[in-house]
């Protein structure tokens, strides 16, 4: 016995593309990857690249409370009301994969507070190579690794490297110093990911986050089409 039609169109339970008022919700893109690979720096660069053309906000998932959120606040990449931290109880992968309830609430609260939004970036806490985002939380995910973490990571694979919608190999400027073979990383990634795209980037170069930003724009175009 239902008193209303809420169940026929599940109201903002998880992956539903519409908000309770019927408007299309923001595209949600997750960024995951090992500790220190440059997730937060990539998020900061994306915010700077996209904030003038898109309404966007960020949810961070920290191991310790709020440190990534505070980095973004210090860098002033977005107004503070557009950045929210989710506390993860020492299990950042749980909060993005197994129990996404706190992240969904954070996304919805952002849309309520500063919406309507075009894009919400959900950054995972630095975790291991197996951490991926639930499809109930994000529409697409970026996995960020770096050349200093070892050039055998693409070969080793794992769910993040293999299945992420975009693989970013970060800090290419460091490759000569840490003895990483970029060509080999590209070949291994190709072997693991078939047609899924890979971006090699150095945020210190002039191009910076441009390739990733272009990919995000393409995702958004497909989402709103």
């Amino acid at each position: 016995m239902h008193l209303d039609h809420a169940h026929d169109t599940p109201t903002a339970l998880s992956a539903d593309a519409h908000r309770p008022d019927g408007t299309r919700r923001a595209l949600r893109i997750g960024l995951g990857g090992p500790v220190g690979s440059g997730k937060t720096a990539t998020v900061a660069a994306l915010c700077r690249a996209l904030r003038d053309e898109l309404a966007l906000a960020v949810v961070t998932n920290d191991i310790y409370t709020r440190e990534d959120a505070e980095f973004l606040l210090r860098e002033a990449v977005l107004p503070p009301e557009r950045i929210t931290a989710v506390e993860t109880g020492a299990c950042p992968h749980t909060a993005i994969r197994d129990d996404i309830s706190a992240n969904l609430e954070a996304v919805e609260d952002l849309e309520d507070a500063v919406g309507p939004l075009d894009l919400v970036l959900v950054e995972s806490g630095g975790d291991n190579l197996t951490a991926t985002f639930s499809k109930g939380l994000v529409d697409a995910q970026i996995f960020v690794i770096d050349v200093a973490g070892g050039d055998d990571i693409p070969r080793k694979g794992g769910p993040g490297v293999t299945t992420a919608d975009l693989l970013v190999v970060n800090k290419t400027d460091l490759a000569p110093y840490v003895g990483s073979d970029l060509a080999r990383m590209a070949a291994d990634a190709k072997a693991q990911r078939a047609e899924l795209p890979v971006v090699f980037q150095s945020l210190r170069s002039e191009a910076g986050v441009a390739d990733v930003a272009a990919w995000v724009r393409a995702q958004l175009a497909a989402w709103t089409a």
Binding site: T88, G89, C91, A95, D98, D99, S101, A102
Partner: peptide, 11 residues
């Protein structure tokens, strides 16, 4: 404990 209701983040 795996019921996805946020308990894992609280001690």
């Amino acid at each position: 404990g795996r019921f996805p209701a946020g308990g894992h983040a609280h001690s």
